[in-house]
Design a binder for these strands. Structure first.
Length: 426
RNA sequence: GGAGAGGUGGCCGAGUCGGUCGAAGGCAGCCGCCUGCUAAGCGGUUGUGGGGGUAACACUCCACCCAGGGUUCGAAUCCCUGCCUCUCCGCCA
């Protein structure tokens, strides 16, 4: 959520941002209209309240002195009724203004390339050598099924499409990846490990920006409390500090969390219907940071580097792209995607998305900090990134390390966790 | 699931029959004074959000004592609902 005052006073910047994102500016006009009305009425209500407060005090005083206050009491009653009526209207306007404001996306950082869609993203750097095969490389789902470590068909029986069963060395590889990632981030990158709730309430989802706009992407429980399944650990982990005022000395805070993630993938019918790329349930290790505003872009570079380190140690070729204004997520000011090489498809595919949200989420979730010796509070900046999506990493390993006989070599960094150098057919 | 207790400022904690209560007191913090140093002591000061106002301060008004309703001229104080916490019993991985 943007600052109301900023939207009011720097409307030009908001319009510019919406245009760069390829969005229409109508929602802004609607907001400004309601906001104008809201502010006028607010002033009116406050004036009447002031009168009422004065009269009430007067009544109290008179009663104490034993004098008759009927006249003034009648007057106060009239005024009070006025307030009730206007307050109701005011509440409607406040609510309306907020609802509109929650639909306005974040302002892209000046360094973000302007563009309409993913074709205009900017490649920032490329790492690693793509593997050369003397045979036709297979898709990861074929490799996995042939080795008996992935079972999409039986998963369909027990859950449905877009689910998978990992089996034997497959299940172990998934677990090894999670451990490897968490160990690296906690031991070498300074993150504190978190294991959060994976069911959350609507407030948490609104705090990080999934709601109200992206409701159709989420799984909901039928339970009357309305729990939602998290689509990413970003939600519970960022909301850890919701409605808190942190100490300047506490910042920056680094958290990492492994969680399963759940996405409905509504609207992606027909896309990536096979394999591990797009599942309703998948594992992810997430990185989350809370920083001071002046540090957040430096921290974004570091966070992205932390995620890249996983790919480097797994010897997976990848590239980093800076998302353009038209392709960037709703809440982000700047986003780097890490894309790993998939030989069978002959292209790079997203495996991590690292973003700086500046104070957009912090304002929604009300996460502030206090500077030593300074009056007042400021919103922190929040950042997060996948470090990494585990299922996609699994898939990338199968494809990049496949051998002609159908077996898969385990990258060095994982052998310690796997207790094996290779997965072969039994 | 059953029975009870409670949710007040950064923290602890008081709020009488509803009436200058944004809220006593303590701790912590900040600024002075005192002091050979440290400790103690003395005086002052310190919430958040929003509106108006200002070059910026100042100033001023409104709201906020878990959340949302209600009663009332007026509610931290009374009533209702929800959420959360704690204690005891039961059940359970």
């Amino acid at each position: 959520m943007l600052d109301i005052r900023f939207v009011r006073e720097r409307t030009d910047k908001v319009i510019d941002a919406l245009k760069k994102r390829g969005q229409r500016t109508e929602l802004l006009d609607k907001f400004l209209g309601i906001e104008r009305e809201r502010r006028d009425l607010l002033r009116e209500v406050e004036d009447i309240r002031q009168t009422r407060n004065r009269l009430s005090q007067e009544i109290g005083r008179m009663k104490k002195e034993g004098r008759d206050a009927t006249d003034i009491l009648t007057e106060a009653k009239t005024i009070s009724d006025q307030i009730t009526a206007k307050e109701e209207k005011l509440r409607e306007l406040e609510n309306g203004a907020l609802q509109e404001l929650l639909l306005i996306p974040n302002i892209p950082h000046e360094s973000v390339p302007v563009g309409k869609d993913e074709t205009e993203n900017k490649e920032v750097r490329v790492w690693g050598d793509k593997p050369q095969f003397t045979f036709e490389p297979k898709n990861h789902w074929d490799i996995g099924e042939n080795l008996g470590i992935l079972d999409f068909e039986r998963a369909g029986k027990i859950a449905g499409a877009r689910f998978v069963i990992y089996k034997g060395p497959g299940a172990k590889l998934e677990r090894a990846l999670i451990n490897f990632m968490l160990n690296l981030h906690t031991k070498e990158h300074g993150y504190t490990e978190i294991f959060p709730p994976i069911l959350v309430n609507r407030n948490a989802m609104t705090g990080t920006g999934q709601l109200p706009k992206f409701e159709e992407d989420l799984f909901k429980l039928a339970d009357e409390r309305g729990f939602l399944l998290i689509p990413t650990a970003e939600v519970p982990v960022t909301n850890i500090h919701r409605e808190e005022i942190l100490d300047e000395a506490d910042l920056p805070i680094y958290y990492t969390a492994y969680t399963p993630c759940f996405r409905r993938e509504a609207g992606s019918y027909g896309k990536d219907t096979r394999g591990l790329i797009r599942q309703h349930q998948f594992n992810k290790v997430e990185l989350v940071k809370f920083t001071k505003p002046e540090d957040s872009y430096k921290e974004l570079e570091m966070l992205t580097g932390n995620a890249e380190e996983i790919l480097k140690r797994l010897e997976l070729p990848y590239r980093v792209v800076s998302l353009c204004t038209g392709d960037m997520g709703f809440s982000a000011s700047k986003t780097y995607d890490l894309e790993v090489w998939f030989p069978a498809q002959g292209k790079y595919r997203e495996i991590s998305s690292c973003s700086n949200f500046e104070d957009f989420q912090a304002r929604r979730a009300d996460i502030r900090f206090k500077r030593k010796g300074k009056k007042g509070t400021e919103f922190v900046h929040t950042l997060n990134g996948s470090g990494l999506a585990v299922g996609r990493t699994f898939a990338a390993i199968l494809e990049n390390f496949q051998q002609e006989d159908g077996s898969v070599i385990i990258p060095d960094a994982l052998r310690h966790f796997m207790g094996a150098e290779k997965i072969s057919k039994k």
